[in-house]
């Protein structure tokens, strides 16, 4: 127990917690949107994240030819390179997510089987992805070259704000805003919402179910891919099993906010990021996940639908 650290380190903890939280927000979109539409935990989402991190690293290392000794980039070249990495990561993750849907869910959905069968087949796909990457990379971790000079750009009081943390917060907030607008304003977004309210009725109203579900996986996968890119800019390292703990945390965030609920995922992700950061500082890093789960159990005890499960019903995906 070390409470003094909260006082002395309050601002850095807050900023780091927010950055981590925004990464969780984007990944938990992959869980919460799929859950909203299919009422299924997308177990392969952590592997979709893992694939995204590898896409980022491979594009910057092999495609652009950067390595650990490369000097940080500047100006247009920096924007262009980071943009390419982000796009590649989003694209690869999105396509993987759609493939996961086709391989693991589509046939089973057509047969109208029980939910656990889909869960196990998703677990199977997740094992295939993880093991495939493990064999391809020979279980060796890969590090992402530092393209962005991690300088402190300005200070709040005595605390410096680092440019990569700001980038994460900025990008994730924009992406979340876009997805939220997309789901509430566009026709496809309306179809997604309709399917999540009632699959049967929306089918009767002429919604192409398979297309909507694929689109949901695509958007969820792309957001997870963006999170993978942001994760790589901050933590600069990846391994074949990187998805497990992060995916678990993001799923917890989705449940915390009320699963199937977009804005719930936003608040759940942010609270989880802050909670982890502060719990790690107060109790020590090893008790981080224990605290998170205890808080989750307590929240579910008093609000069984998650923190915002009922309150923001209208924004349900």
């Amino acid at each position: 127990m070390n409470f003094s650290v909260v006082v002395s380190q309050f601002w850095p903890l807050l900023i780091n917690g927010l950055a981590l939280g925004f990464i969780y927000v984007l990944i938990s979109l992959g869980y919460t949107m799929v859950y909203g539409v299919l009422r299924l935990i997308n177990f392969a989402n952590s592997e979709i994240f893992m694939v995204g991190t590898f896409a980022t690293v491979i594009v910057s290392r092999n495609f652009f030819g950067f390595n650990q000794n490369t000097d940080p980039l500047h100006g247009f070249k920096l924007v262009y390179t980071l943009g390419a990495c982000l796009l590649a990561s989003m694209l690869v993750s999105g396509v993987t997510a759609v493939l996961v849907e086709i391989v693991a869910y589509r046939r089973l959905r057509a047969k109208g089987t029980n939910r656990l069968a889909s869960l196990i087949s998703a677990i199977g796909v997740s094992i295939i992805l993880q093991e495939g990457v493990r064999i391809l990379t020979h279980s060796v971790p890969m590090s992402n070259p530092r393209l962005l000079r991690k300088a402190y750009i300005f200070n709040i009081g005595s605390v410096g704000l680092r440019v990569d943390t700001l980038l994460v917060i900025f990008f994730a907030a924009i992406l979340f805003f876009l997805v939220d607008r997309f789901v509430s304003k566009t026709l496809l977004g309306k179809a997604i919402r309709a399917v999540s309210m009632s699959e049967e009725t929306s089918k009767l109203m002429g919604v192409n179910l398979n297309r909507v579900i694929s689109a949901t996986f695509l958007i969820g996968g792309m957001m997870t891919g963006a999170a993978a890119f942001l994760y790589e800019t901050v933590y600069e390292n990846t391994k074949y099993n990187v998805g497990f703990s992060i995916g678990l945390a993001a799923f917890t965030a989705a449940v915390l906010g009320g699963i199937g609920n977009l804005r719930g995922a936003f608040l759940g992700g942010l609270s989880l990021g802050l909670l982890e950061e502060f719990a790690a500082a107060i109790l020590g890093t090893q008790w981080k996940s224990v605290t998170v789960f205890l808080v989750l159990v307590l929240v579910l005890l008093f609000k069984p639908n998650g923190l915002f499960g009922e309150a923001v019903q209208q924004t349900r995906v």
Binding site: I120, G124, G132
Partner: peptide, 13 residues
């Protein structure tokens, strides 16, 4: 493990 995952997906389908 890869074959195991494959077997899970195929049998469940």
């Amino acid at each position: 493990q890869l074959v195991f995952g494959l077997a899970l997906v195929i049998i469940m389908n």
